[in-house]
Write a protein that binds this DNA or RNA. Structure first.
Length: 431
DNA sequence: TCTGGGGTCCTAGGACCC
DNA sequence: TCTGGGGTCCTAGGACCC
């Protein structure tokens, strides 16, 4: 059964442009947290030679800064726009298999029921109803659907859709695509492939299976089969995540243990919330810290520590306490910290909690769980951290800082508004 | 001055067992 | 000279993705 793929073009930039139509043909970039790196580029920005992942401050060195409109990342907006696109897609094609914030696969009964015209119409409807331009690829395997989508995006004459619906087209499609641009082939494999004389996806598809297995392992084989038209990549649901991570780089270096504990408490609380939202519990709480790896002139330090809970939990106080203990065990005085994070793992559904025979706090735990349910309800109505632990010291409790805008030690100088999710940010129309 | 964040899966190697 | 063999489970690190 063939697979379809809908991929939003330059997604974050496209989201910003929906509310800034004046930028429709201008070079636009969206930056990562802290306004650090370029993570989304309009076609115009790509044509200027701005690479993905380039540090924002380098734009200045390239002297293109003045011609480019930058945005700080506005994940609330992107998540909501993504939701709209996915909902519309589902209403058009039935069951969808969301893959990332800007991509979703879907099953296609047969090519007889899904013409190129139909794919073009789908793309046009999504643009019309959400404002987001998308590309549509349809092919016998997920990897080939990715290839098709790439052609849909690159070749003007295809009108945003490409079908690889017979073997002649498949052969031709893989001959004209670099092996490095294939889904599943990463940077680390490229030198080895080059040494073997493999340049295109077709070169790779023609290798002996045994050789592929030896050189590139089971994942290499999967990609090889998929390029040859044999569907092996499974469309599995990963609804419940197996690890949950919250981490940030700091706009300003952090030196005291107290400051670090505050940040780690916030990260841990955020993780615990994500955990409860997917109705799971975690047993392992890991904390990591690191100095600024770009500063050769400063002491380098990176470390991590894990605390195992006796009984898997999802309530904020317990997760925060564990994270703080882990933090305390790795804090080193005299280091300037640039980044820290909390990772929860050993995650299971919360109806299958394995209690410990040494667990003497089960009553306290169930009290905590009830308390969290109430707090979550309050916070979902009144804003994240409306109720919080004293150790968190969330955004609005921070001392006000001078410009540039700092929010919990995060730089966001080019932030757009939450046009679609916050009443105070709804766009004004002046007639 | 300024360099992102959040995931999944596989593999190799160690610990342990009989 | 020559130091079992086979299995499981766990974990850290690597590779990949967007």
């Amino acid at each position: 059964m063939p697979f379809g793929l809908v991929d939003c073009n330059n997604f974050f930039v496209s989201c910003e442009r929906v509310f800034r139509p004046d930028l429709a043909t201008k070079p636009v970039v969206v930056l990562s947290n802290n306004d650090g790196c370029v993570v989304s580029r309009s076609n115009e920005a790509k044509q200027m030679g701005i690479p993905m992942g380039m540090p924002f401050f380098r734009l200045r060195e390239f002297d293109v800064e003045k011609r480019v409109t930058p945005f700080s990342s506005n994940y609330t907006l992107y998540a909501d726009m993504s939701h709209r696109v996915m909902q519309l897609l589902a209403s058009e094609v039935g069951d969808i298999i969301p893959y990332s914030i800007d991509e979703s696969f879907f099953a296609v009964d047969s090519f007889a029921n899904f013409s190129h015209d139909r794919a073009v119409q789908l793309s046009a409807k999504i643009l019309k109803c959400t404002g987001i331009p998308v590309s549509v690829g349809v092919a016998p395997t997920m990897t080939l659907a990715k290839v098709a989508c790439r052609y849909a995006k690159k070749v003007k004459g295809y009108h945003g859709a490409c079908l690889i619906d017979n073997d002649t087209k498949r052969q031709k499609a893989i001959q004209h695509i670099d092996i490095g641009d294939v889904w599943g082939i990463g940077r680390r494999s490229l030198p080895r492939l080059k040494a073997m004389g493999i340049v295109t996806a077709a070169d790779y598809a023609q290798l002996e299976e045994l050789q592929v297995k030896r050189q590139f392992g089971i994942n290499g084989i999967r990609t090889w089969q998929e390029l040859n038209g044999i569907s092996v990549v499974k469309a599995e649901d990963h609804d419940a995540k197996q690890s949950i991570c919250t981490s940030r780089s700091f706009a300003e270096m952090v030196t005291t243990e107290e400051q670090l504990l505050t940040h780690v408490s916030n990260f841990a609380a955020q993780c615990a919330l994500k955990l409860r939202q997917q109705q799971s519990v975690a047993q392992s709480v890991m904390v990591f810290v690191s100095s600024n790896r770009f500063r050769d002139d400063m002491e380098q330090y990176a470390n991590a520590a894990t605390v195992m809970l006796d009984v898997a939990a999802s309530n904020t106080p317990e997760i925060v306490r564990a994270a703080n203990a882990a933090m305390h065990s790795i804090y080193k005085k005299g280091v300037s910290y640039k980044k820290a994070g909390v990772v929860l793992s050993s995650i299971s559904p919360n109806h299958a909690v394995q209690t410990s025979i040494f667990d003497t706090a089960s009553e306290q735990r169930s009290r905590n769980d009830r308390l969290m349910a109430v707090i979550d309800k309050i916070n979902s109505k009144n804003g994240r951290d409306a109720v919080h632990l004293a150790s968190q010291q969330p955004d609005d409790a921070q001392p006000a800082k001078e410009t540039p805008i700092f929010n919990n030690n995060l730089r966001r100088e080019h932030m757009s508004r939450c046009f679609t999710t916050n009443f105070n940010d709804i766009i004004d129309v002046h007639v």
